[in-house]
Design a protein around this nucleic acid. Structure first.
Length: 589
RNA sequence: GGUUCCGUAGCUCAGUUGGAUAGAGCAACUGCCUUCUAAGCAGUAGGUCUUUGGUUCGAAUCCAAACGGAAUCACCA
């Protein structure tokens, strides 16, 4: 919130008290609509009863009060119950000067609180796809935003590297792989493994068809297919630590991890700590024992362990199988414990798709019932699936938009577009490639992050992601433009606040003054889309200003200097805002 | 069937505690590059905010119901 807004709020609260004896805890101001004159608007309808006057009369009284008591107010207009307040240019310039001279205009003071954010969480049986991109970009961005919001952030990744699905690709590799490796096949490790995950499904389906031809019911055929039985056998061997199986598992996992490493690098995301389910899956059992002892869980005659969540509006939920092995939620209890032991974070954010809404609801209820110290501050950042025009993506059927392919395509599109526009004069090859990368990824990240997470979104591979309009490259372009001006601007002097402002200049100052509050809102709501929309708004406002005003050739020294400072601060703000989205804003493009 | 989420322009989406005549971009059409990067700017056109009822000075926003779509309700992860 800017100082202008604060001053107005204080004065309006005083005014309401002195004129009408109304006490208000918080005055809510909004931006005045473009059709009306003014910068801030107070809606006075809520005070009509207490004041015993008509809305317009209250607004007029308050406006006159401000004129008499508040130096920054230039004038006011009353439209029905709306009090529109105009601010002196000198006050706007004061605001600009204060933001421009702020040593840390983008960093909110430390809250002394640690937040743990878990995202990405891939399976090691297949490469990453478009859905993972949404997850990774969201998780990384939220981490950046929380850090800017004053939190101590720890980024974690819980890799699902064990289970029947992993055995499926291992088995298929054993059967059909002919010892091929990433080196001999020329395939990235995760893609090679993914190939066998698909191969398993193909073979499995063939076997089911054969069994059905022999007269078995579909259900029976699915359970009895030899290749599935073999995969189950392999899982047992894995759990027993069978040497051959472990060797294969280690080898294939190493391939996948090397592949993921590359993808993460291209995505520009990183982690402070990587957990693997193969190390954590047994941990939850201790917690189950504790819960049984304290009566939170109960045991059925067959030995399985359950929790009753009917009082919470849910139902009974299994937490341990009758054979004593752990299920998904057992692992998550264990992992939650482990993460708490490692980091003692006061908040924990899980970036996981909305198909697991129910799972996390259950998990958080269980942690509360167990009265764990980490039962508070848990948040499931749930996001919708990315659908294709043909429907849902399915890895085992090969109907996915592959993450690596898509990123490569975006980079290629950025390259084509840039060459078309002939904009890389004087770039070295390294610089060009860096630019194509930043633009391609910028377009992709912005496309995925500008949308509210919980909405499911449609991605049409036939229609490439735009580079014009409300897009990442538009914002990046604005930044590059600003850099170009600044390269030619020479020294920047301090602001002379005795000058006049055009409306586009004033709008820019208004937006720049809001940025810290925007970060706070985004952090409080784990919402990159708030930052994305702000960045677009800011870029758009700057471009309007850029087209209306001359900057470098402005003859009035004071005005010229103000405009350069405006450009400078806008550039820095865009740079920072895009960085919170994981987007790099190039200096030239 | 139960629960949860979503439904705003032809398409993709904004709309932060309820406020003025519901906003952008894409696509279509018109203008603007011998002045700071035209990946830009200005403009035209495009809406029963799924529907119905309720709450109130005021509802896209809150409540209820209906309709449409999605997810989930596994001793899979």
């Amino acid at each position: 919130m800017s100082t202008i807004q604060q001053t107005l709020q204080e004065q309006l609260a005083k005014g309401l008290h002195e004129l009408f004896s109304i006490e208000v805890s918080e005055i809510v101001l909004q931006e005045t609509k473009k059709e009306f004159e003014g910068a801030y608007t107070l809606v006075v309808f809520p005070y009509t009863k207490q004041a015993g006057k008509a809305p317009a009369a209250i607004a007029t009284d308050l406006g006159e009060y401000l004129m008499a008591n508040c130096g920054i107010v230039k004038t006011f207009q009353v439209v029905q119950g709306f009090l529109n307040i105009s601010i002196h240019d000198s006050a706007w310039l004061d605001l600009l000067a204060s933001v421009a001279s702020d040593k840390n205009p983008f960093q909110i003071e430390s809250k002394g609180e640690k937040v743990l954010i878990e995202y990405s969480s891939p399976n090691t049986n297949k490469p990453l796809h478009l859905g993972h991109l949404r997850n990774n970009f969201l998780g990384f961005s939220v981490a950046q935003i929380l850090a800017a919001g004053g939190y101590d952030v720890v980024k974690t990744n819980l890799v699902n590297d064990r289970g029947i699905h992993i055995c499926k690709s291992m088995l298929a590799y054993q059967l059909f792989g002919n010892n091929e490796t990433p080196e001999t096949s020329g395939l990235k490790g995760d893609h090679l493994v993914g190939k066998y995950y698909v191969a398993f499904d193909v073979a499995y389906k063939e076997e089911i068809a054969e069994l059905k031809a022999k007269g078995l019911e579909e259900e029976q055929a699915k359970k009895q297919a030899p290749i599935l039985l073999k995969a189950q056998e392999m899982l047992l061997k894995w759990e027993q630590g069978d040497e051959e199986v472990m060797n294969l598992w280690n080898t294939m996992n190493a391939w996948v991890f090397a592949g993921f490493e590359k993808s993460y690098k291209t995505m520009g995301v990183s982690f402070d700590k990587i957990y693997r389910e193969s190390n954590t899956y047994l941990l939850g059992k201790q917690i189950v024992d504790e819960g049984l002892a304290s009566g939170v869980f109960f045991q059925k005659p067959d030995g399985s362990v359950w929790i009753n969540l009917e009082a919470e509006g849910l139902d009974e939920k299994l937490v341990l199988r009758k054979d004593g092995t752990s299920v998904y939620i057992t692992q998550d209890m264990g992992t939650a414990q482990l993460k708490y032991t490692d980091f003692k974070a006061s908040q924990s954010v899980y970036v996981v798709g909305n198909e697991q809404d129910y799972h996390f609801e259950v998990l958080f209820h269980i942690l509360k019932k167990l009265n764990k110290p980490f039962s508070q501050g848990n948040f499931h950042l749930s996001y919708g699936m990315v659908d294709l025009p043909s429907g849902k993506m399915k890895s085992r059927e090969g109907t996915v938009v592959d993450a690596d392919d898509l990123m490569a395509e975006m980079i290629q599109t950025a390259k084509d577009r840039t060459l078309e526009l002939g904009k890389i004069d004087g770039f070295t090859e390294v610089e060009s490639n860096e630019l194509f990368h930043n633009l391609g990824l910028g377009a992709l990240k912005y496309f995925l992050l500008k949308v509210e997470p919980k909405k499911r979104m449609l991605f049409n591979p036939e229609e490439s992601i735009d580079f014009q309009g409300n897009t990442g490259p538009f914002i990046q372009y604005t930044h590059a433009r600003i850099c170009s001006i600044l390269r030619k601007a020479g020294t920047i002097n301090s602001i002379n606040t005795d000058s006049e402002l055009a409306s586009s200049e004033q709008e820019l100052i208004y937006l720049l003054g809001e940025y810290k509050a925007i970060i706070a809102t985004a952090a409080a709501n784990f919402a990159p889309s708030v930052i994305a929309n702000y960045a677009y708004d800011l870029a758009k406002t700057f471009n309007k200003f850029y087209n209306e005003m001359t900057i470098l050739s402005e003859e009035n020294e004071v005005k010229r200097n103000i405009r350069i400072i405006l450009a400078d601060l806008t550039g820095k703000t865009i740079q920072h805002a895009t960085s919170l989205l994981g987007i790099v804003s190039p200096n030239r493009m």
